[in-house]
């Protein structure tokens, strides 16, 4: 497992040189608190994100919870929730590390084959991941939707920067995209 710093070291070692692009790492450090806020925002809202994403997936495809569907009976519904949470957890680790290796090595490696063997429909899984991707972006920007959240709206209240953490949103999105492409 690597993080942004050890990734730079491994890359430099491959050519037996010192790490020369220190500026990228300084930028990583400079935005470190925002990154931690982003991780905290996802971690604190994880269980809601997971259940909402799975609920959204089922709303769009009711067949999943009918006899013969992949989220029927409850036992399989629970497995589905657990899997979505696992995926979100590894995306969170990757965001904390600033590097995708933990997601690749510990979560995505072999996931598609496993799902194929278990008969899990990847289109549904991908849909749930897409919903989590949108949720994560909203939490990092701290802009949950008034219309949808209604009385349950919860703001993290961290300092909001002008660009609303655009680069962190993009980075987090890239990890979700990695999951989606690994499953597709």
């Amino acid at each position: 497992m690597l993080d942004a710093f050890s990734r730079a070291v491994v890359a430099a070692d491959a050519s037996t040189s010192t790490v020369s692009d220190i500026n990228a790492l300084k930028a990583f450090v400079a935005s470190g608190n925002r990154r931690l806020d982003a991780v905290n925002a996802i971690a604190s809202n994880a269980s809601c994100m997971v259940s909402d994403a799975v609920a959204g997936m089922i709303c769009e495809n009711q067949g999943l919870i009918q006899a013969g569907g992949n989220c029927y009976p409850n036992r399989r519904m629970a497995a589905c929730l657990r899997d979505a949470e696992i995926i979100l957890r590894y995306v969170t680790y990757a965001l904390l590390a600033g590097d995708a290796s933990v997601l690749d090595d510990r979560c995505l490696n072999g996931l598609k084959e496993t799902y194929a063997a278990l008969g899990v429909p990847t289109t549904s899984t991908v849909r749930a991941v897409q919903i989590m991707k949108a949720q994560a972006a909203a939490h990092i920007k701290d802009t949950p939707s008034d219309a949808r959240a209604g009385s349950k709206k919860r703001l993290m209240g961290s300092i909001v920067t002008e660009d609303r953490c655009a680069s962190l949103v993009a980075e987090a999105s890239s990890y979700f995209d990695r999951v989606i492409s690994a499953l597709s």
Partner: peptide, 15 residues
């Protein structure tokens, strides 16, 4: 960072 993540992962929890 990797040590923290490895420990969280071993416990199956979010950071």
């Amino acid at each position: 960072v990797t040590t923290v993540i490895a420990a969280a992962d071993a416990a199956g929890r979010f950071p």
